Structure formats: structure tokens, C-alpha cells
Simulated scan of single mutants.
Amino acid sequence: MLFNDSDRARIARAIADAEATTAGEIVVIVNTRPHRYTATMLAAAVLAAFVLPFGAVLAGWAPSLLFPDWDVLDAATRERHAVEGFVAAQAVLFVATLALVAGLRLDRILTPRPLRRDRVHHAAMVQFRARGLSATQGRTGLLLYVDEPEHVAEVIADDGVFALVAADDWADTIAALIDGIKAGRAADGMVAAITRAGAVLSRHLPPHVGDVNELPDTLIEL
């Protein structure tokens, strides 16, 4: 767990303080649940089922090893048994590989990092829409999203912010967050990131008369 109750209170205060200087709406979400990569598990199992039996044949394995009466079988029966034996070996390898990869959680290791980052981005976008950031007045929602298992942090801005703030302007926000987590001070990093995000928003979206707090200021942990 990255945060305790005291940390959560600090982060909520930091969000409220940052939003007091801007018309923007800041939401902070931290995901701590590991991702499962089903496609990778299935791909590994299929690859093992197709490659390993062929490798075994090249290494000298033969269907006759599975059938003690191989020498007395007629040609048609031998051919049928050979196909059955090969298919059975593939089925066993598929199930065994799938169980091994899933049980040892090798799917994350076997999944290329760009694909894992895409998964995190997709999850962040789902949360962005689900938490109402795309429905604020003026479209001024800003999401700070941290995926702890994948060690990825993202800043996602709604249209009203994106039109005014360049993507590079969030570099310091991300850096503060990542530096704090790497140093073992996740709460400090989060507070620093929120403060810097608030400073960016205040320059481009200062508060206006009648501005209301549309989204909760509490840390959201998944």
C-alpha cells in the first residue's frame, strides 16, 4: 500500500489548495491492482503447443514411443495413431504452458513494455470518463493517474485544458510524482505533483466568479 490515512488527508488538502487557484478540476487515481495479460498467456501456450512437438520430432521423438504395439499395427492405424499422439501432445503442452504462465504470473514479463503502457493508458481513459472528468463545466478536468504495478504515471487533460496547455508543460508534474515514488516517499511526490499541476492550471485557467467544485478532492485508490 502506497498511502496511509495521513497521506490521503495530505493529498486531499493538496487537491483542494490547488483547485482554489484555478477553474480546473483535478482528480487523482492510483491503481494498485496487477494487470493480467490474457492474450500473452494464450499466445505463449499456442506457441509452445506448435513449436515444442516439432522440436521433439526433430530431436528423435516418434509416435511409436506412445504405442507399445506400434510394430504390429497396419499402416492406416499407424497414421491415425501418429496424428492422435501429436494432437494429444499439443493439447497437453497447451494446457501445461497456460497453467505455468498464469500460475507464475509470467504474462507481464512476456508482454512487451509498449503493450503494457497501452493497457495502462486505456485503463486511465476508462477512469477519466467514468469519474466524470469529461463532463465538467468548461471541460477543465485533469487526471493524475498512477499505475503502481506497471510503474507508469500519466496526466490526461480534457479538451478545455488540452487546448491551452502544451503536453510538455506536464513534464515537471510527472517528474515530481515519479521521483517521490522512487525515493519511497509516494505521498510527498503526489503532493508535489498536485501542486505543480495546480500551478500550470492557474496560469491558463484562473478561477472565475461562480466557479464550483464539481469533482471530489479525495484520493481514489483502485
Results as ranks from 00 to 15, higher is better:
Glu150Met: 08
Pro149Arg: 02
Thr195Pro: 00
Val57Thr: 12
Arg8Glu: 10
Ala183Thr: 01
Ala44Cys: 14
Val87Pro: 10
Ala96Tyr: 09
Asp168Lys: 07
Thr97Leu: 06
Val83Arg: 13
Arg117Lys: 10
Gln90Lys: 04
Ala56Asp: 06
Ile181Lys: 05
His204Thr: 12
Val209Gly: 03
Leu205Ile: 14
Val101Cys: 06
Asp211Ile: 12
Leu65Gly: 10
Glu150Pro: 01
Arg10Phe: 10
Val165Glu: 06
Ser64Tyr: 03
Val209Leu: 12
Ala176Cys: 09
Leu110Arg: 05
Gly24Gln: 11
His81Glu: 15
Glu19Ser: 05
Gly55Val: 04
Pro63His: 03
Val191Leu: 04
Ala23Trp: 01
Val30Tyr: 07
Arg36Gln: 10
Ser6Asp: 14
Phe67Ile: 15
Ile174Val: 15
Ile11Val: 13
Ala171His: 08
Phe86Thr: 15
Ala20Trp: 03
Gln137Gly: 10
Leu52Arg: 03
Ser134Tyr: 00
Val28Leu: 09
Leu144Arg: 01
Phe162Ala: 13
Val57Phe: 07
Ala49Glu: 03
Tyr145Arg: 01
Thr136Tyr: 10
Ala124Arg: 01
Ala12Gln: 13
Gln137Met: 05
Leu115Gly: 07
Leu58Ile: 11
Arg108Cys: 11
Val28Pro: 03
Thr97Asn: 09
Leu222Glu: 15
Ala16Leu: 10
Gly141Trp: 02
Phe67Leu: 14
His35Val: 09
Ala89Gly: 13
Leu143Glu: 01
Leu42Asp: 00
Leu73Glu: 04
Glu150Leu: 08
Thr21Arg: 15
Tyr145Cys: 01
His204Gly: 00
Ile29Leu: 15
Gln137Asn: 01
Phe162Pro: 00
Arg113Lys: 11
Glu25Ile: 02
